[in-house]
Amino acid sequence: MEKILVSDQYAPDSLSERAEFGDINVPVVETALQHVNLRQVATRTGSGHGVSFSELPVTGLLVLRARSERAALQSALQTTVNIKLPDTLQSEVSVSSGSHKSVYCIRWVAPDEWMLSCPAQDAFDIETRLRSSLGGNSVAIVNVTGGYSVLQLSGQHANDVLKKSTVYDVHPQNFSVGKVVNTTFAKAQVMLRCVSNDEYELIVRRSFADYVWHWIQVASKEYGLSVSRS
């Protein structure tokens, strides 16, 4: 009997931008900030401001949990996606391809917890392969693709916006490129990653995305905010 359920949570051909509802057989995807119509906002704000914001398209996200079976997880990851676990807690390992900086990125966020991101359509495949590679080892894998919104904040004042928003010490001396932390973001929580200098990734709970977006607009007001739809 199957011990852990692995189910496909991705509908093929479904990465089209949301249009008017037409055919029930053509699923459309909505990101958490779809209602904001960021593309239109982007036109309005122009570019070249102190802070730049974007919401990534739906990104495949898998929570990986392991305690004593870390080695097993490590080797399963290596066989399936050829990525290794980060060496230190609160850091990440990314695999890039072409212009994509992190096609796969694994973030070590708690002693027994990692967050793996991947293209949305690959999440089921990766989970399945990890499961079969892990065999009976006690590792938890949870597909949480729909549960989060992946945001990007960049620009010369992005760090200032973070300082207004999180209690974590985001000074580059402490929060250097490649560091990932779970912390607060205003009254919400965030998985925060320093992608490169002045470029940050915010993974927030989907239901809080609208709040976070409103907060960022207010916090970046004095620096100017440009929006892009990546």
């Binding site: 509908a11 479904s14 949301r18 509802f21 029930i24 909505e30 958490a32 729909g146």
Partner: peptide, 16 residues
């Protein structure tokens, strides 16, 4: 359904 399909399915149910 995964949250990003939620509105689609909701509207499909109303359509049908």
């Amino acid at each position: 359904v995964p949250a990003h399909y939620g509105l689609h399915v909701w509207e499909a149910l109303f359509e049908q």
